[in-house]
Design a protein around this nucleic acid. Structure first.
Length: 421
DNA sequence: AACTCTAGCAACCGCCTGTGT
DNA sequence: GACACAGGCGGTTGCTAGAGT
């Protein structure tokens, strides 16, 4: 790992320049830090080094305090209840570890993140889905029935946070252990439970993000590599989705949207955690990381009529793998970002793992990323292009028809594994 | 016993936002 | 508005202990 620093402005450059100590903390350092915080309180971390005698940068001190020395930390393995909660939270908010940590007293974002990643790896290894069937089904049902939160949008005082909560309530699921994914039936039932456009108009929050991201997000923040939730309601510009690699993977077209109309929240979960190398190499200019889903809401009402006549329909690339757009009513809400990933990304997870576990009866979704860097260290990516070629119906017309009917999705998820090479 | 593999964890990195000037 | 700085966040890396061979 290179230590060349490109960071601009934060104290770490300073830390490097001053040869601050790095690596594991010693008990002596811990004591110094604890003593300092006891005396001065936390915060102002760069002052810690100056006043405590620690040869650590402020960031390192903060991290050490937050993750290990804070008195309210809970140590030890995650309990079943905590695990259950983590699953719920991840289903609702994706890789928002810090937010998840606020819901799990005594646990840190880092801890949750490690726990989750480990868990995902384990389940992937076992060929089990990340989310229990119960979660998926209940979330699906909740999404289908959840036409009742319009008040929250009219209250005039809701924060993004409250919107998030309003948008998606993850019930107390019964987390029996995981069964194999029934992706096909699940997805088909998703499609059959799609609310009407009118419902969606009334509840724009319910029908945001992730699925639509594959439909084709007109949202592409310029010159941004990452998105944070407070930006959800920010203005948008045309272009590929934020998850532009996944967008490019699906190769959906650029669409200019206008304010007040439907747009897709940027932290889409859909395919968003599968950072493949795209075969359409020219489209990918840098190895951007894709975030796992974050729960997103529209602040802007959805204009479905407009969306239905979306110019995307008139745009078609020769390489288009999925015909866009599907109208919003083609999909349910992104009731569970992570769940959707489990459903759809399962296919990509299969593809990712196919080379090493072709015999697995169910290669499940995983947020473990395969970045171009990790998949393509030799400078080429040998396994993505064939995937794309076989990813979905052949012709655009067929694609559209099939996609709307959910048939090829079924094949994709449950039957057709040819694309795994 | 020696070696390899890997899961789990701690720490770091780079980017971001918020705030103050 | 531009800039610098502090702090926060999510992704990644590297170390280590334990399991497997």
């Amino acid at each position: 790992m290179g230590k060349v620093r490109h960071d601009s402005g934060s104290g770490d450059d300073f830390a490097i320049d001053n040869n601050f100590h790095k690596g594991p903390w010693t008990s002596t350092e811990d004591q110094l830090l604890i003593a300092y915080v006891d005396k001065h309180g936390d915060g102002n971390w760069n002052a810690v080094q100056k006043h405590s005698g620690l040869s650590r940068c402020g960031k390192s001190c903060r991290l050490r305090w937050v993750n290990h020395l804070r008195p309210d930390l809970k140590k030890g393995a995650f309990t079943d209840k905590e695990e259950q909660r983590v699953i719920e939270l991840h289903a609702s908010m994706g890789n928002k570890w810090a937010r998840m940590a606020t819901e799990l007293p005594g646990r840190t974002d880092n801890e949750i993140k490690n726990f989750w990643n480990t868990r995902v790896k384990r389940l992937q290894r076992l060929g089990l889905p990340i989310y229990p069937d119960d979660v998926r089904e209940q979330a699906m049902n909740a999404a289908a029935q959840n036409g009742h939160n319009t008040d929250s949008l009219d209250g005039g005082h809701h924060s993004q946070e409250s919107l998030d909560l309003d948008c998606l309530e993850i019930p107390e699921f019964d987390f029996k252990y995981l069964q194999l994914n029934n992706c096909s039936s699940f997805y088909q039932s998703m499609l059959s439970s799609i609310p009407t456009g009118n419902q969606m108009r009334q509840n724009p929050c319910l029908f945001q993000s992730n699925v639509y991201n594959v439909i084709g997000s007109p949202y592409m923040p310029p010159n941004r590599k990452r998105f944070r939730e407070p930006e959800t309601a920010c203005p948008y510009s045309g272009g590929y989705a934020t998850n532009d690699q996944s967008a490019q993977l699906w190769n959906y077209p650029f669409v200019e949207s206008t304010p007040g109309q439907f747009y897709v929240a940027p932290d889409s979960h859909f395919l968003g955690n599968s950072t493949y190398s795209s075969p359409s190499e020219p489209l990918i200019h840098e190895a951007e990381k894709l975030e796992l889903p974050s729960f997103q809401c529209f602040d802007t009402p959805v204009d479905w009529e407009t969306q239905h006549s979306n110019p995307m329909q008139t745009i078609e690339s020769d390489n288009t793998l999925v015909q866009f757009p599907l109208t919003p009513s083609d999909f349910p809400s992104s009731f569970c970002d992570g769940l959707l990933e489990s459903v759809v990304y399962g296919s990509s997870g299969e593809r990712q793992t196919a080379n090493t576990d072709l015999d697995s009866p169910l290669l499940q979704s995983s947020p473990v990323e395969l970045t171009p860097a990790t998949t393509n260290t030799s400078g080429h990516n040998s396994n993505t292009e064939p995937d794309l070629v076989h990813f979905g119906p052949a012709s655009s017309k067929e694609r559209r028809t099939s996609f709307e009917g959910g048939d090829w999705i079924s094949q994709l998820l449950g039957e057709d594994r040819e694309y795994t090479q």
